[in-house]
Amino acid sequence: MTESAQGRYTVAVLGLGAMGLPMATRLASRLTVHGFDISEDRLSLARDAGIETFGSAQEAARGADAVLLAVRNGAQLEDVLFGEADVARELARGAVVILTSTVGTGPVTATAERLAELGVDLVDAPLSGGPVRAGNGDLLVVVGAPESAIERARPVLDLLASTLTVVGDRVGDGQALKTVNQLLCGIHIAAAAEALALADAMGLDRARTLDALTAGAAGSFMLGDRGRRMLEAYDGEGAPVLSRLDIFVKDMGIVGRAARDVALATPVAAAAEQLFLLGQAMGLEAADDSSVIRVLAPELRSAALAEG
């Protein structure tokens, strides 16, 4: 147990973006939170939320019981822990690193091996739910880690998750299940875009079509959630960004690599990935992922290409 654990549990949240900041705010309701982000704007927002911020990732992590990482990809994971930020050297033996991002099994297992040499456990805990649910502690978190490491991370996990599923005791099990989850989510978003674009092309009322579809067997969470947001693309600039399109470019790439590693064909996922890649090529990488409908609907595609 680290020194700070003898008093109030301390967690360093590194990465105060769309998910990191609401998670930090939620954790600060019960725990001592140290926050850091490379963006001064995000640090300012964190301070406004009552979170103590630090000038470097190392300072934020120093003496913490747990370090929660909300990074974009495996390269950022490597950089934060062992690269320029070099946070790993500040971690006390017995501390835990909680990785909430989807980066794939390879980077996670390699990172866990390096941390183990320092007496630090990695808790593989990718999550789903979006910023609002993060702030309310209503996330789905899937965990792969030894039980002893999970127990040391419990103060963090229990505050963030309304559904906490331990899928295995191996680091990488959480990433594996999240990869399967993202396969379905990416396909469902792409299918919703295709269906609504077809309905519009056939002259159907878009809102009535969506209501009918979500009430029947064709309904899904992504159709109901992203479908509403897709309709906003027809009325102007589109929906506010809750989940960037390039996140699914990354995640569907992880799905493809995982499938190739086990020699499994995933043709539907591959087709969905192409839609997200086309959206990125059209300049929509920073737009909400619901904007993938712009790749398919002729009038929206033309407008997106003109803007690009």
Results as ranks from 00 to 15, higher is better:
A112Q: 08
D138P: 01
A12Y: 05
A49Q: 01
A70H: 07
C185Y: 01
G74F: 12
R30A: 15
L210D: 12
V241Y: 01
A281N: 12
D169G: 15
P240C: 03
D79L: 00
G17P: 01
D205Q: 05
V255M: 09
V33N: 14
G104V: 06
F221T: 03
A192Q: 02
R42E: 06
S148P: 00
V249N: 10
E84W: 00
G219Y: 06
V180W: 09
M222T: 13
V33K: 15
I51A: 13
L115W: 00
L183K: 04
E273S: 13
D225N: 14
F82W: 00
E307S: 13
L21G: 08
T53L: 02
G15M: 05
A88T: 04
T266D: 05
P155N: 13
A269S: 14
S302N: 11
S220V: 09
A12E: 13
V97C: 08
A64G: 01
V156G: 09
G236E: 06
R208Y: 01
E194M: 07
L231N: 14
M1Y: 06
A281S: 15
I247F: 07
A125M: 03
P146H: 04
A85T: 10
V292Q: 12
R226Q: 11
P240Q: 04
D37Y: 05
T32H: 13
D289P: 08
D246L: 02
T209S: 15
V249E: 11
V180F: 10
E147W: 06
A95Y: 00
A193I: 11
G63E: 11
L160C: 06
G129S: 14
G130F: 12
V13K: 12
R42V: 03
